[in-house]
Design a protein around this nucleic acid. Structure first.
Lengths: 331, 331
DNA sequence: CTGTTAGCGCATTCAA
DNA sequence: TTGAATGCGCTAACAG
C-alpha cells in the first residue's frame, strides 16, 4: 500500500540526494555520477515514481499535447486521419486531446477555448466549412494549427488535403475514354472545400463542350442524400458521378430499385474509397484518397510548425483512380 | 499584438484587485462584490484571459481528463464508444486523452504509463483479451477504471458490455423457429470476451440435442477471416452463424462465389449491426448492440467511480434481434 | 467581502 | 558534479 502520490521529493529523500539531482537523472540534462544515477533509479523504481507531466507542463510551458478537432469520430474517413496523426505524434511523445464538434459551430468555439486553456502545443482541425471562425481563433492564440481536408491561406495555419480536383479530372478522363458522354454529378454541400473542388473539376471537364450532356444536383455526403438525388434526376445519364462513396452507395441502391443495371445501363462512381467500396455489389469505381496519410502529413506539418516556425504551407496529396465493376468499359 | 501568456496576475493588476479575487470570480467560490466582478471580467476580456487548466490541475490534483485506450480508432464499433463517452464527459467538463494500442500489449503498457503520468482522473479501456495486464496496472495506480466490452471482477474496475450471450440465444431461437436445423458457427478469437460469450450461447443451444447438426470454426473478427472459414466448411448448413458482421460479409461473398443463394440455399447472420449491415445485398440479419450507449454507460460508471467511490460494478446492455433478408423465414 | 501567502511537482538558475 | 532556492499559474487557507 503506497501513499497517494510519490513526488520527486520522495525519491530525493529516499535516495539521499537533492530533488535537482533526481530531475537531472530523469531529464539527462547534465552529468550526474554513475553512483547517484544508480541510487536515484533504484529509489524511483522502489517507490514507483514517474515524473508528473502536469507539473512538467506548467514549468516548461509546453504540454506535449495536440488538440484534435473533428466533426465525427465515427466516420472512418475522419478517424483514419486521427490514427495517422496519432501514430506519428506518439513516437515523439505527444498525445492527442480529442474533441468532436459534431459539426456544431458554437460547440466548436467552446471546445477551442477548452483546448487553448489546456495549453495545447498545437491544433489539428478538420472543419466542414471552408471558412471557419476557428481559423481566426487559432491565429489570435498563436497556436500552430493544421487544417486537414481544407485549404486556406492564412498566417499560422498550414493545410493538408487530397488533390480533389486532379482526382475527379482523372476519373472523368477515364469515363470519357470508355465512351461515356452524358453525366450527372451528385455533389456534396459546396460549402465544404473538397466538394467544391470536385465540383469544379467536373464542371471544367464538361462545360462548354458540345459532345457532353450533364446535370448537377446538390446534396450531402450521405447515403440518404444519394438516394434522394437520384430520384430528382431528370434523366438517367451514361454515368452518375458522385461526390463521395456514401452518395454512390445510395445512388446505386436507388438506381437498381428503379430497374437499372449497373454498369450495363448506367455507370456509377464515388470518391474516397472507403473500406466498403470494394465490398459492394458491384464493387465501386472510385478515386482513392488516403486519409491515414493525410492525418500523418498533417501531424508532420504541425511538428515542423512547432519546432521550426514554418507556419504557412500547403500539402496536396495524390489520389489514385480505382477502376472496379460499377463502370462499364465500353458503350 | 499581445504578450505570450496572460496570467491571473496580469488580470489582477489590470483590474486593480488581488489574484485571489480574480480566482474567486472565475470559480464562484465565495462572494465577490458586483463591482469587482465587473472589473475583473472586463479586464479579463480585454486581455483575453482564460484560466490555465494546467496550473489548475497541478494545484487541485485533478485534471478533468479521462484516458481512453482503444485497439483501433478506425473501427466504427470502437469509435462509437468513444463518441458515446465523449458526449457525456464533455458535458461535465472532462476531456478525452486518446490512445490507440493497435492491440499491441507492449505498447499498451507504455501508453498506460504515459496516461498515468499525465494524471488522468479515470481510464476507459477497450481491451481485446479478456485478461489483460493493464487491469492490474489500473488497480495498483488506484485510478478508477472502466472496461468496455469485457467483464472481470476486480477492485477499482467496473465493466460495461452487451449481453452477448442473450443476443446469440435470441438469434438461435429465431433460426430454430424458422426451421433451420444445421448450423455452422464462425467464431472470432475466443481470447476476446465477446467471442467467448457468443460461442458459449451457440454451444449451449445446439449441444447434446439430436435435432441439430453443427460445426464450429475459429478465426478473427474480419472480412477475410469470414471468407477463409467458409472455405473450410465441411458442408454447407442451413444457417451460417457468424461471430460478427464483418465475418458475415466475408461469408456471404464467399458463399455466393461458390454458387449458393442467400437466403434460399443458406441463411447468414451476424452480430453488431454496423452501418453497412442494412446496406449489404441481401441486408444482414444480425444482433444489434449499441456501441454508442456502451461508451456512454461506461462514462457514467466512471464518473460515479470518481465521485462516489463505487468501484466495482458490471452493467450488461440489452441487444436487439434485427431480422433482415439474409435469413429465410421458412424452410 | 478582500488581500496575503503557501505550496501543488517540477526544471533551472546560481552557488558551492 | 551537486544542492538550495526560485517561480511556472493557480487555489485555498488564513487574516483582516
Amino acid at each position: 500500500m503506497k501513499s497517494k502520490h510519490v513526488s520527486i521529493r520522495d525519491v530525493a529523500k529516499h535516495a539521499g540526494v537533492s530533488i535537482a539531482t533526481v530531475s537531472r537523472v530523469f531529464n539527462k540534462t547534465s552529468f550526474v555520477s554513475e553512483e547517484l544515477i544508480e541510487k536515484v533509479l533504484t529509489s524511483a523504481k522502489e517507490l514507483g515514481y514517474h515524473p508528473n507531466r502536469v507539473a512538467q507542463s506548467l514549468r516548461k510551458g509546453q504540454t506535449k499535447t495536440i488538440g484534435f478537432l473533428i466533426p465525427d469520430i465515427v466516420n472512418p474517413f475522419f478517424s483514419s486521419m486521427v490514427k495517422g496523426a496519432e501514430d506519428f505524434l506518439k513516437s515523439l511523445g505527444y498525445i492527442i486531446l480529442l474533441c468532436s464538434s459534431s459539426g456544431d459551430r458554437e460547440k466548436e468555439n467552446e471546445l477551442l477555448v477548452t483546448l487553448y486553456s489546456r495549453k495545447i502545443d498545437g491544433l489539428i482541425a478538420i472543419t466542414l466549412e471552408e471558412n471557419n471562425p476557428l481559423i481566426d481563433s487559432a491565429i489570435s492564440q498563436k497556436v500552430p494549427t493544421i487544417l486537414i481536408d481544407n485549404v486556406v491561406n492564412r498566417p499560422f495555419v498550414s493545410c493538408v488535403a487530397s488533390d480533389n480536383y486532379g482526382g475527379v479530372k482523372k476519373l472523368m478522363n477515364y469515363l470519357i475514354e470508355t465512351g461515356h458522354s452524358s453525366f450527372a454529378f451528385l455533389s456534396g454541400d459546396p460549402i465544404i472545400y473538397s466538394a467544391k473542388e470536385r465540383l469544379k473539376a467536373f464542371k471544367d471537364t464538361v462545360k462548354g463542350k458540345d459532345d457532353f450532356e450533364f446535370e448537377i444536383l446538390f446534396g450531402e455526403y450521405t447515403y440518404e442524400s444519394g438516394i434522394e438525388m437520384v430520384r430528382k434526376l431528370s434523366r438517367i445519364p451514361d454515368a452518375v458521378v458522385c461526390g463521395n462513396d456514401m452518395i454512390a452507395f445510395g445512388a446505386m441502391v436507388e438506381l437498381e430499385r428503379q430497374g437499372f443495371r449497373i454498369p450495363q445501363d448506367v455507370s456509377v462512381t464515388g470518391f474516397d474509397d472507403i473500406l466498403f467500396s470494394r465490398m459492394s455489389q458491384p464493387p465501386l469505381t472510385t478515386v482513392r484518397q488516403d486519409a491515414y496519410l493525410m492525418g500523418r502529413a498533417g501531424a508532420e506539418l504541425l511538428i515542423n510548425a512547432i519546432n521550426e516556425e514554418i507556419k504557412n504551407e500547403v500539402v496536396l496529396l495524390e489520389t489514385t483512380l480505382e477502376i472496379r465493376g460499377s463502370t462499364r468499359e465500353r458503350k
